[in-house]
Nucleic acid binder design. Structure first.
Lengths: 136, 136
DNA sequence: GCTCGACTTCGAGTTAACTCTAGCATGGGA
DNA sequence: TCCCATGCTAGAGTTAACTCGAAGTCGAGC
């Protein structure tokens, strides 16, 4: 079975070896093994697990909470409900985040249009009179 | 014309007075006025400007770059092109962010389904055999 | 045998964006 | 008149998530 050094794993996951050691120190990789001389080696299952970590991170979850999840994974079937709840909550968080981004996008597109008109006119002054009439 | 104290502005913008003073110190509010005794008062135009700041922040733009934009605003029509470019870039950033969130969401939903099945079976072991066959 | 690159640990340093503390000023209500 | 909330400044403290430096080990290739 293929394994990865910390440098290779970092490359695959688009992280630095520093970050991976930090995650290890924070307890995000309890199943990570080492060879006789103490060097970490990452199995495919470790890479997969780190991809989940990355997924949770991208929902804005802090490392400490991710660790809680990892601990639940180690505890086995008795924590299935907590883990399910956690993913449900993450789903809600991502949905909220996406909704917020849609609103952000509306403002940005409005500003793009605003500056396109201003550029055409050569001056921002074109908007001064009818600002109140601008659609938000 | 209605104005707001720093506390009122903070409430309206869902920020703290600390944060608003910090933004002021960082130069994000060059048009902000004060009364005779040095107390800031926020006009509607300041509130609107801070909403744009908030919008840019929510695209992940750091304060220093937002300041650059604010400075361009102060410089007038000669920076229209830069400002337009900036919003175009922000649009691309938000689009990328949304696309990433869609991917994140797929993983999360997959995990929700995974844990629903596991809960039904009472054990995570139901997935052990056909993990490789799981759709990602 | 030597060198080189990649690995190790430990602990210190970095960065952004606040957040708070201390000490003081001000203005309105009882 | 006194009190209290709220404002001010300067500067220190906080937090997360790395990021790095120092000093040392290890295995491969020449």
């Amino acid at each position: 079975m293929k394994t990865y050094s910390i440098g290779q794993a970092a490359k695959v996951l688009n992280l630095t070896p520093y970050a991976l050691r930090y995650y290890d120190k924070e307890g995000l990789m309890p199943f990570l093994e080492r060879n006789a001389s103490g060097t970490r080696f990452f199995k495919e299952s470790d890479i997969a697990s780190l991809k989940i970590v990355d997924c949770l991170k991208s929902t804005g979850m802090p490392i400490k909470e991710i660790k809680t999840f990892i601990d639940w994974c180690s505890e086995g079937d008795s924590t299935l409900q907590q883990r399910h709840n956690m993913f449900q909550e993450r789903k809600a968080v991502v949905e909220a985040h996406m909704a917020a981004l849609v609103e952000t996008m509306k403002v940005i597109e409005h500003k793009c249009a605003y500056y396109e008109e201003a550029l055409e006119a050569g001056t921002e002054a074109v908007h001064k009179d009818n600002w109140a009439a601008q659609p938000r």
